[in-house]
Design a protein around this nucleic acid. Structure first.
Lengths: 201, 201
DNA sequence: AAACTTATTAACCATTTGGTTAATTTTAAC
DNA sequence: GTTAAAATTAACCAAATGGTTAATAAGTTT
């Protein structure tokens, strides 16, 4: 026997929660151990250091989420369909993993370099999407919009609500977590209409 | 003489930078002292504790930025003009204070309650804006859009690029800080066109 | 310039924190 | 059932960190 897989998973789950909630600097190894119901020494027995554990978790997060989105870019469909599919599946991923955007946002501040490298090395290629937009402009299908502005628009509309979840929930919706979920579920389908109407000629 | 105003400001500046860059948990009192070119004991002589210092800084940030935006809501202009003015001045504030959105975003994660209270007590009232949207829908000026979705759209489009600045700069623009500034300067004027086209009947 | 207040510092302290050691219990192998 | 490997723990450690103390330097007042 080499490493109890059950304990290993328990730790990884606990650590993921802690890091997502409190960020790297706010997370304590003791806190992870407590949450996993184990001893701090055992934690270090399974994972060398806090940093090593964090690396694994952030890598895992990207391995899971990025590919689903990339595949949408690469499909050979028209721009409108791409936008519809992208927004819908992008929001859907985060409805199921609502703490991830904040986690990533925190990481942007702490270590921008690492994050950029991670995304790049995970095969995201914005150029394909850019070209699709440029083509649509040339063909007169959409208005003359800067492809970079449009991409930022799309990503902003999908991601920001998750990053600012408490503000959206309490200040704008004046509700609770359930109201937020409903709001995002509705958004998942509506957002592409808004975007497409904003660029269609 | 009670407290050297110069030293006091030096500390506040240093602390603001540190907190903005590293977040509450990542910031060290020694780091602030170093940056201010003083001794750690003097830091505590001027500001009771790390938390007290942080409170002052986050309050100050809100006192400065919120009122400018609220005033736009309250003006008695039509919806389209309101959107134009809001997006333009909102983005402009952050072009001049680009680290603030990340700072606030970190605070959302650490202490959502405090942030929501702070915003509410600083007089932001979304209802005025909501009503303006509802009225525009009724009068057939814009399509039948959920006012909450529209507000989130507007805020997302303005704020998210700042929160994800490194990603936008390196991954989408494939440039540097200057490219980002140019991008946002252009965005300041273009974004309202996109929004209004997206809702106009 | 003496007396007093304010500003600044070096040295110190208690607690927290990531990480280690060495011993103990559990599991698997023979 | 004995032995070896793996899993788990209690106790410990050094460095970092927020904060304090007590002494000194710089200004003000009279």
């Amino acid at each position: 026997m080499k490493y109890n897989i059950d304990t290993s998973e328990k730790i990884l789950n606990a650590a993921t929660h802690e890091f997502e909630e409190k960020g790297y600097n706010g997370t304590r190894m003791q806190g992870i151990a407590n949450r996993a119901g184990i001893n701090k020494a055992l934690l270090h027995y399974y994972y060398k250091s806090k940093d090593a554990l964090f690396q694994i978790i952030i890598h895992k997060a990207f391995k899971v989420f990025i590919p689903q989105i990339v595949s949408v870019f690469e499909e050979d469909t028209d721009l409108f369909t791409t936008i519809e599919k992208f927004t819908s599946s992008y929001i859907d991923v985060y409805i199921k993993n609502p703490r991830v955007p904040s986690f990533i946002t925190q990481e942007i501040n702490n270590n921008p370099e690492r994050l950029v490298n991670l995304i790049q090395s995970s095969g995201v290629n914005v150029e394909i999407f850019k070209n699709k937009i440029i083509k649509a402009v040339k063909e007169g299908q959409i208005i003359d919009i800067d492809p970079e502005q449009l991409i930022v628009n799309i990503v902003s509309l999908c991601l920001f609500p998750f990053v600012a979840k408490p503000i959206v929930t309490k200040l704008i919706l004046r509700g609770n977590d359930k109201d937020f979920d409903r709001f995002m579920e509705k958004r998942k389908n509506e957002i592409s209409t808004f975007i497409i109407k904003g660029i269609r000629k």
